[in-house]
Amino acid sequence: MPNRQKQAGNMTDYPLPYASQDLTGQVALVTGATSGLGWRFSQVLANAGAKVVVGGRRKERLDELVALIQKNGGEAAAATVDMTDSESIIGFVEAGDKAFGTPTILVNNAGIPDAQRATKMPIDLIDRVFDTNLRGPFVLATEVARRLMDAKKPGRMVNISSAAAFLYSGEGAALYSVTKAGIVRMTEALAVEWARFNINVNAIAPGAFQSEMMDGMLERVGDISKGMPRKRICDPALLDSSLLFLCSSASEAVTGTVIRADDGQNPR
């Protein structure tokens, strides 16, 4: 990822078009990689040339994903991570550093639902949702940022929020909505703080996309797609272009932005 300081009007060092999505030489960390969006994101980044460290709690699924990436010509390594445990999070970053060098891309994707009304949630579930969805991603982002600053390298961070950050139906999952709104504000705040270090922090807020979490929701409440404008649950592949844009040199001037990829499901 180039780090250029340009004078106004001087664009001679920028090729035309300046919009490469080649991630060769980059080291990416992806959490929540054992299924759903993280499973797809890991393969997309590897296909673009990044060396990918996949993280999650299920070691067998991580190993399966690494084998799949390697089969398709990519480079990957697996490291388990518990997003509720700070030591585990730091260990995950260290594992990535040991495998491929300083991580330059972070996809903060891990998250869990609450699926309950606020007054029905036991305290241990409140803690688990907060820690997994908000506290853990904050700890992980700061750990990666420290290493980038020490190495004087630019970086890209993509935090995965949700359309629920902007609209809540009132039918359960209030805390999930709160934590995903927190991810949006975290993105905006860290983008400002770290801009001078050439660390870009952005977010994607997906609507209803295929995943294990979505499968569980559909089992509980039925087919929600009937009430959507396009009457569909989106395929994770539809996020490929947004992810690659935010992880590549094409987004050099973009930081603190949230891409709302909700398929028109939520009114603005």
Rank of each mutant, 00 (worst) to 15 (best):
F166Y: 15
E193Y: 10
R156Y: 05
W194M: 08
T12A: 14
I105Q: 00
Q26R: 14
D13E: 15
T104N: 04
R4C: 06
R156D: 07
I160A: 03
L45I: 03
A174W: 04
A50F: 01
I89L: 08
F138L: 15
R40E: 08
A118V: 12
F209V: 12
D124E: 14
V27M: 01
V66P: 03
A191N: 08
Q116M: 14
G222W: 13
F245W: 11
A173G: 08
V129G: 02
P137A: 08
K51Q: 13
A173E: 05
V258D: 00
Y176T: 01
P15T: 09
I105K: 01
L167Q: 12
Q116P: 00
A165W: 00
F209Y: 15
F197A: 14
G38N: 05
N198K: 13
M83I: 07
F92K: 03
Q21D: 07
I199G: 06
G9T: 00
A189Q: 13
V52Q: 02
G73P: 02
D215Q: 14
I69W: 00
A145W: 02
L134V: 05
N159T: 01
A48I: 05
D97I: 06
R57G: 06
L29S: 02
R135K: 15
S20V: 10
K6A: 13
I89P: 00
S251F: 05
T142R: 15
F100H: 04
Y14F: 15
E87P: 02
E171W: 14
A99T: 06
S211C: 07
L239H: 01
G264A: 08
P154I: 05
G155W: 01
G111L: 00
G73F: 03
A46T: 09
A67G: 10
A164Q: 13
I183F: 14
V178S: 14
L148H: 04
E188R: 14
D131R: 14
V258C: 10
L148T: 01
I90Q: 10
R40F: 13
A28D: 02
R185L: 13
Y18N: 15
V178G: 11
G9N: 04
A48R: 02
V54L: 02
G32P: 01
C247L: 11
G207M: 08
R230E: 07
M1V: 09
L148Y: 05
D82G: 07
G96L: 06
R58D: 10
S242K: 07
E193C: 11
A237T: 08
W194Q: 04
N133T: 03
A174G: 15
G136L: 09
G38L: 08
K153Y: 05
G101S: 05
Q210E: 15
R4V: 12
V53Y: 01
Q116F: 05
L29T: 01
M214N: 08
D82L: 10
A141Y: 04
K180V: 03
Q21F: 08
R146L: 10
F41V: 06
V158K: 07
D13G: 11
T80R: 04
E75N: 15
M186A: 07
L125A: 10
L148Q: 00
L16D: 12
R58H: 13
R230T: 09
R230P: 00
E252V: 10
